[in-house]
Design a protein around this nucleic acid. Sequence first.
DNA 1: TATAATACATCGTTATACATTGTATTATAA
DNA 2: TTATAATACAATGTATAACGATGTATTATA
Lengths: 107, 107
Amino acid sequence: MKNDFLKNWDTQLKKGMLSFFVLQALEHKECYGYELIQNLKTSMEIEVTESTIYPLLIRLMKEELLVHQWVEQTSGIPRKYYFITEEGKSNLVEMKKNISVILSKIK
Amino acid sequence: MKNDFLKNWDTQLKKGMLSFFVLQALEHKECYGYELIQNLKTSMEIEVTESTIYPLLIRLMKEELLVHQWVEQTSGIPRKYYFITEEGKSNLVEMKKNISVILSKIK
DNA sequence: TATAATACATCGTTATACATTGTATTATAA
DNA sequence: TTATAATACAATGTATAACGATGTATTATA
């Protein structure tokens, strides 16, 4: 069981890593917000709430790293699908470079 | 040259990684605040300002991951040396584990 | 027929990096 | 001699991002 310091540290570490993983996930395959939360949990073991993911997606769209498209469903609420842009892809490459530099500093 | 998004992302990534690197540095060798800033820059290529490091050291002491000791100098201002505690060392181990889990998720 | 799951979103709180500013001492260059 | 930089500590205010709580609406299930 994690202590309070480590729990808070996990949260702080997400500030940065989460946007990387969201871009990585959407580069692999476009999806809608709710689906992204499930995907991060099941295939990445990253737990995020809606109050984290929706503002994050909005920020990434403002930065033009993502675009969205509403898709009507045969039944139920329309889904807002997110797609990574070319700028998103090139930023993802830069982010990966930065992360490997950081990793090289870990003893 | 990094764009605004990447510059901000770097800052966000520090929120979490910096406390790890400070603990790692102090595990290697105790030092005082100003010295720590120099060490992080020269041997780790991590740039931090005093307004980042001093509050961080205070937080890590509150968590009892660090302790400090004032050391008088033959000339000049006394220096506040920081030492990692046993709890600090064990938390550092946990942090390193967490980081490798995160890394394994990078494609 | 109530409850859970799906799907969107916002608001307030909290934590942290950083620019700016401040104090004080010592070394160096003009 | 004097101004400037470097050393060494610290606090204040701002911006950013994760998260708990809350809200709306639809569909599936018990």
